[in-house]
């Protein structure tokens, strides 16, 4: 793996604050604001589960990645529109989602205005009376410094640890 250059303490804190702000915005169901102010138009938003393979098996030709999410901006926009429709009964009463974001590492990106951001997430999602679901995954993000000086997300690859979806589905902000 190529060496990555860590960013300054100042930028590290700035990225950390952006992640915290993002998760609060999503928790408060400000999905449209999130999409419009924190997400770049060329966003690639992936969540990938891995099929279990033997370590030494290099002959099998089938794909190993099992995508749960493979979205672009338009797709995220449709997901937000679903929530805005006023018809989404599965989140009425509302779900409650809390992200715990740790192990944050921030590096200089491939492009001069971009940062590579690694983190671990544990997300607890509550819905209905009895459903409390916990998800554990890593996030490999790319955040971009835009012309207005603000940081926006331009790539997120959620690396899901569980092989099966234990908590019903991945249809929540991961």
């Amino acid at each position: 793996m190529e060496e990555l250059n860590p960013v300054s303490h100042e930028i590290y804190i700035e990225v950390q604050q952006a992640l915290f702000k993002e998760t609060r915005m999503l928790r408060e169901e400000r999905w449209r604001e999130w999409l419009e102010t924190m997400v770049e138009k060329d966003i690639v938003y992936l969540a990938i589960v891995s099929q279990l393979r033997y370590r030494k098996d290099n002959r099998y030709t089938g794909a190993k990645d099992v995508p749960s999410l493979d979205e672009n901006w338009a797709g995220l926009d449709r997901r937000v529109a679903q929530m805005e429709s006023g018809l989404q009964w599965t989140t009425d009463p509302a779900e409650r989602i809390r992200h715990f974001i740790t192990n944050l590492e921030v590096f200089e990106g491939k492009n001069p205005n971009e940062y590579i951001v690694y983190s671990n997430c544990q997300t607890v999602r509550n819905r209905r009376v009895y459903e409390e679901m916990t998800y554990c995954y890593g996030r490999n993000d790319v955040w971009r410094r835009c012309a207005d000086g603000k940081l926006r997300l331009c790539r997120r690859e959620v690396d899901v640890d569980e092989r099966f979806v234990s908590g019903k589905n991945h249809n929540f902000p991961m």
């Binding site: 749960s68 997901r79 009964w89 599965t90 019903k168 249809n171």
Partner: peptide, 13 residues
């Protein structure tokens, strides 16, 4: 994936 995958909008309905 968007409709009937494990994060599908209709699947979760």
């Amino acid at each position: 994936l968007r409709t009937f995958g494990t994060a599908g909008m209709l699947e979760s309905d």
